[in-house]
Simulated assay, not measured.
Amino acid sequence: MRSLLRFGSLVALVVAVIAGTIDSIQSVAASVVVMTPMGDAWNDISPSTLAFLQSTISYYLHPRVYDDVLQWVLYQPAFAVFLALSLLLWVVAYKRQPAAGRFAV
């Protein structure tokens, strides 16, 4: 399970770097700072899954959850969302060293 979470963290980090690179290229080309919101990036890639997520959350949880929580996430820059997801997965998969040390009996 830990290796699966680490792999998910790696994938999220790679997607964050790609999204950040695309935003930086667009920023240089436009001579202004461009940060693509997560919702716009998701809508460009797969609009049907975004609509499915909205209807699923509205039906099974509550419509206000989508309006308050998910809309806020969708307005954040895509690279920041994937960086936060990568960090969260890495923290969950992290294994601390024993307090006694490596050579303790």
Results as ranks from 00 to 15, higher is better:
Leu83His: 03
Leu13Ser: 11
Thr56Gly: 03
Phe79Leu: 07
Ser55Lys: 12
Arg64Ile: 05
Gly20Gln: 09
Val15Arg: 04
Ile22Trp: 06
Ile18Ser: 12
Ser55Leu: 10
Thr49Pro: 01
Val32Cys: 05
Leu83Pro: 01
Ile57Gln: 00
Gln54Lys: 15
Leu70Asp: 01
Ser55Asn: 12
Val32Ala: 13
Ala84Ile: 09
Val28Gly: 11
Leu74Ile: 10
His62Cys: 08
Val81Pro: 00
Asn43Glu: 06
Val14Phe: 10
Phe82Ala: 05
Ala78Gln: 06
Leu70Ile: 12
Ile22Met: 11
Trp72Pro: 00
Gly20Thr: 11
Ser27Phe: 07
Ser58His: 00
Ile25Ser: 11
Leu83Gly: 06
Ala16Ile: 03
Gly39Glu: 06
Leu70Val: 09
Ala29Cys: 08
Thr21Pro: 01
Met38Thr: 08
Gln26Val: 06
Tyr66Ile: 00
Ile57Asp: 00
Tyr60Gly: 00
Gly20Lys: 07
Ala19Asp: 08
Pro63His: 10
Trp72Met: 04
Ala84Thr: 09
Ser31Asn: 14
Leu70Gln: 03
Arg64Glu: 06
Val33Gln: 08
Ser58Gly: 11
Ser58Cys: 08
Asn43Tyr: 03
Ala84Pro: 02
Leu53Cys: 03
Ser46Gly: 12
Gly39Asp: 15
Ser46Lys: 15
Leu61Met: 14
Asp68Pro: 02
His62Thr: 13
Thr21Trp: 14
Phe52Thr: 09
Leu53Phe: 07
Phe82Asn: 03
Asp23Pro: 06
Ser24Trp: 12
Tyr75Lys: 15
Val69Ile: 12
Ala30His: 08
Tyr66Ser: 02
Ala29Arg: 12
Asp23Glu: 13
Ala84Gly: 09
Ser46Gln: 13
Ser58Phe: 00
Val34His: 04
Val73Gln: 04
Met38Glu: 00
Ala51Gln: 08
Pro77Gln: 07
Gly39Val: 03
Asp40Thr: 08
Phe82Thr: 04
Ala30Arg: 09
Met38Asp: 01
Phe52Gln: 06
Pro77Ala: 07
Ala19Tyr: 05
Ala51Ile: 05
Met35Ser: 09
Thr56Leu: 10
Val17Leu: 14
Asp40Lys: 08
Phe52Ser: 04
